[in-house]
Simulated scan of single mutants.
Amino acid sequence: MNTEEIKLKSETERLVLRPLQNQDYKRWLEGCLNRFPSQYKYDDNKMDLSGWTQQKFNYDVVSKFQKYADQDEAYVFGVFRKSDQKQVGKVEVETIMREEFQWGLLGYTIHNQFWRNGYGKEAVKELLNIAFKNLHFHRIEAHINVDNKPSIKLAESIGMEFECIRKGFIFEFDEWTDNLVYYMNSK
């Protein structure tokens, strides 16, 4: 898929979703550095950013994400607040399978200092619009740990439907864990 032909920037009432660019380094760094300590099991701890330079960001984030998009493997969008241009998180859709399936996987992370403002819901709803209209996916799934209540609540609040539990689906926390599968099909 030629990403130059695809509209990959979108806006909501309060947010801008777009691929990260080299000039986003300071906003990205600020968002990561200002995270609160982990709030629960599925909230990432602060990253060790001591080795992250502008060059490393350009190569390990911007170039890598662009390569994924160019190869139709994944589309990663920075989520920026319109009022002050702060990066509040990221959302992504990964290609599971194309051809007759047009099937993707949803991912989202909002920095915890921006929680409880509805940014996750707003960003994920817009990502689904992009995935269906611009990237031509037919089905998007979210794979959610069975005890990740905030993520379950988000998926349900945007109209994703629970489909099943996949037993021993993902290896994390040093064991094979079960995941809930929520999905949405294009209309």
Rank of each mutant, 00 (worst) to 15 (best):
N45E: 15
K133A: 12
A123Y: 06
W176V: 03
R27W: 03
G89D: 06
R27A: 10
Y42W: 15
K86V: 02
N2W: 03
F137K: 01
S10Y: 14
L135G: 03
K82T: 00
Q87G: 00
K86G: 00
G51W: 03
D43N: 11
M97R: 07
E13D: 10
F77M: 13
A74M: 06
E156Y: 04
M47D: 06
R116G: 04
N179V: 14
Y182C: 02
D44H: 09
V61E: 03
K82N: 01
H111Q: 12
E11H: 01
R14Q: 08
S151D: 10
F169M: 11
I140P: 02
Y108H: 15
N148T: 07
I144D: 01
V88S: 05
E5Y: 10
D70A: 08
F137W: 02
L20Q: 07
E4F: 11
F132A: 05
I158R: 05
A155K: 14
L17G: 10
G31V: 12
H136S: 05
K187I: 04
Q39C: 09
Q113S: 07
N117K: 15
F137N: 02
N134A: 14
N179D: 10
Y25V: 12
R27Q: 13
V91W: 05
N45C: 09
H138P: 01
L106V: 03
D72G: 00
N112M: 12
E122A: 12
I144K: 11
D44I: 08
E126G: 08
Q55K: 15
A123M: 13
F173A: 08
D24L: 15
I6P: 01
W28V: 11
D84K: 04
A155W: 13
G31N: 11
F114E: 06
W103V: 02
Y119I: 14
D48N: 15
D43Y: 06
C164M: 14
E122V: 10
S83W: 00
R18W: 03
Y42A: 12
D70H: 00
R116I: 02
D147H: 13
N179Q: 14
D48W: 05
E5L: 15
D70C: 08
L49M: 14
R139H: 01
H138V: 01
L127S: 09
G120F: 08
A142D: 06
M97T: 00
F77T: 01
F65D: 10
T95N: 09
Q71K: 07
L49F: 07
R35L: 13
S50W: 06
L15M: 07
N58F: 07
Q39R: 14
V146M: 11
Y40M: 14
W115N: 10
F162D: 07
M160T: 04
M160A: 14
G120P: 04
G168T: 08
E172N: 05
N2T: 11
N145A: 15
L128M: 15
V146K: 15
L106C: 12
W28T: 07
S38T: 13
T53C: 10
N117F: 10
I170G: 01
Q87R: 10
W115D: 03
G118V: 04
L106H: 04
Y182G: 03
K46V: 09
